[in-house]
Nucleic acid binder design. Sequence first.
DNA 1: CCAAATTATTGACTCTGTCAAGAGCACTCC
DNA 2: GGAGTGCTCTTGACAGAGTCAATAATTTGG
Lengths: 149, 149
Amino acid sequence: MKTVSDNQADLLRRHGLQATAQRLAVLRAVSERPHGTADDVAGAVRARIGVISRQAVYDALGVLAENGLIRRIQPAGSPARYEDRVGDNHHHLICRRCGRMVDVDCAVGAAPCLTAAEDSGYEIDEAEVIYWGVCPDCREAPHTDRARP
Amino acid sequence: MKTVSDNQADLLRRHGLQATAQRLAVLRAVSERPHGTADDVAGAVRARIGVISRQAVYDALGVLAENGLIRRIQPAGSPARYEDRVGDNHHHLICRRCGRMVDVDCAVGAAPCLTAAEDSGYEIDEAEVIYWGVCPDCREAPHTDRARP
DNA sequence: CCAAATTATTGACTCTGTCAAGAGCACTCC
DNA sequence: GGAGTGCTCTTGACAGAGTCAATAATTTGG
């Protein structure tokens, strides 16, 4: 019988990547905590396999993202975040106060948003949409900004 | 007769900001070269008024953006960029190879894109849209990636 | 099991951007 | 038009996120 790790190892090899302990752990960490930063991932990986270098984390995240196994999101004012929900080009909704990020299905449709009004001759391959707002929790809580007299 | 600088000074004061030489020069630099980075702006300002500290540039860009006189765009993998086209919530189209950025009018309409399919209870105030692709020039030119054997 | 090639580790380094203290201006009020 | 007050600029140290480069360790095809 094959374990989850075996399947993920095969997945990596099918993409022409070597299946190392570090990459497997990174892949698993991203899938367990969507929208985590490289640092979060490093922490989760260390909890599981003991030790990993910062560079290995960046390398793994890099090749996984390049090969479409994970997706990198880089919101303004935040380090890059990673998620394993790929292939459906969904969008993100971020709270301006607490930074919490949630997924949003595309309003337009399945293969969405890839048509700009005028494409200026560009060959568009991705539409990145980030909605900014205030999450329910932060809306209820008193404004920390205004709280200081 | 009023000069351009006088008008911009008034503009600043109308927003409750002091009209300093540095701020005027920053505002002018942003308007002259849209999509420039803080560093570009600093260079342009130095060419005009001689010298400005890095901090003053960041301060000026910060207050101008806060007051809606300019807009800050922070694309993945690039330092922040600034433009003076504000108030119409247009979007951007960036070339993956050369980084060139062009404006795109919103496909949806005038006050656009603020409606996500499901808002998860968030109070959305901005929709940031970035299209990624390859510009006409880079499409014609040979791939630098593939060019190395 | 072995050799070649890919990956990981280590540590220095770069690039953007921020913080804090003091000096210098801009604007207001007389 | 001059002086005070408070905002703004300069200077220099600092921090976070990510990259580079050389060496050591694994993976994997044969």
